[in-house]
């Protein structure tokens, strides 16, 4: 029986879905870790990106941060954070994943604020809007397409990297792949494939869904084809 048939068999066994460490548990774990990481990253990146963008300062910092995180392997914070005082379990995994979600969120929030037409800003000020009102009723609505694009990138990236949490026994769908490798490829090959398929399907599904959401929240006039 080759690995592909093994995968079909493995996925067709209902116990593999409902076991205590089955697909459903791992999927929920994966989604919980990812949601927490994206939330944390938004809470950090959006206020900073928006305030830097409004003042038009710190472009260098935003670019530097995006480039720097590209060079950091995901496994580094995953292993270092638990030993640096974050403790074991979900919190260090969430922080590690959030680190990689911050750059796209920060960059798009920054760009979104920069792209607000200065004349629109002047007009709003001329109408007597305070700084806070300007942000809430003019700048943020205009920046929504950018924020949505950043959120989409961040969510897909976190869902993808969350699989690596399994390398430090951190839970999520990656655990299925790791368990398959643990059995050896001869017997666990099907499980490895099944785990890979689930993770890939989740990432592609999220990408497609969020692309739709991004289109919905982008005003027709701002939509560009392709």
């Amino acid at each position: 029986m080759n690995s592909f048939q093994q995968m079909i068999t493995w996925l067709n066994d209902p116990l593999n879905w409902t076991n205590p460490n089955g697909i459903m548990t791992r999927l929920l774990e994966h989604l919980r870790l990812s949601a927490a990481a994206v939330l944390l990253a938004c809470l950090v990146a959006w206020p900073i990106g928006i305030s830097l963008g409004r003042r038009g300062r710190g472009a260098g910092l935003v670019v530097l941060l995006s480039n720097a995180t590209l060079a950091i392997p995901v496994v580094a914070p995953l292993t270092i954070l638990p030993l640096a005082g974050f403790g074991f379990g979900a919190p260090p995994v969430i922080v590690a994943l959030a680190l990689f979600a911050i750059p796209p969120l920060l960059a798009t929030a920054y760009t979104g604020m920069r792209e607000v037409d200065p004349e629109v800003r002047d007009a709003a000020r001329g109408m007597g809007l305070s700084g806070w009102q300007l942000l809430r009723t003019v700048e943020l609505p205009l920046a929504v397409p950018y924020l949505a694009a950043g959120l989409r990138t961040a969510v897909v990236q976190v869902l993808a990297t969350a699989g690596l949490a399994a390398l430090v026994n951190g839970g999520g769908l990656g655990m299925i792949v790791a368990a398959g490798f643990g059995l050896g490829l001869a017997t666990g090959g099907g499980q490895v494939l099944a785990g890979g398929l689930l993770i890939a399907a989740l990432a592609l599904l999220a990408e497609a869904l969020l692309a739709g959401v991004q289109r919905l929240v982008t005003p027709a006039a701002l939509r560009r084809s392709a």
């Binding site: 690995s3 592909f4 897909v156 869902l159 993808a160 990297t161 699989g163 690596l164 399994a166 990656g174 792949v177 398959g180 490798f181 490829l185 090959g189 099907g190 490895v192 494939l193 785990g195 890979g196 398929l197 993770i199 890939a200 990432a203 592609l204 990408e207």
Partner: peptide, 21 residues
């Protein structure tokens, strides 16, 4: 773009059973 969206872990998991370790 689709290849790039597939998580690295999943990509290696797809290849390993066929190409071995």
């Amino acid at each position: 773009g689709v290849l790039y969206t597939i998580p690295s872990l999943a990509l290696f998991a797809f290849l390993a059973p066929f190409l071995g370790t």
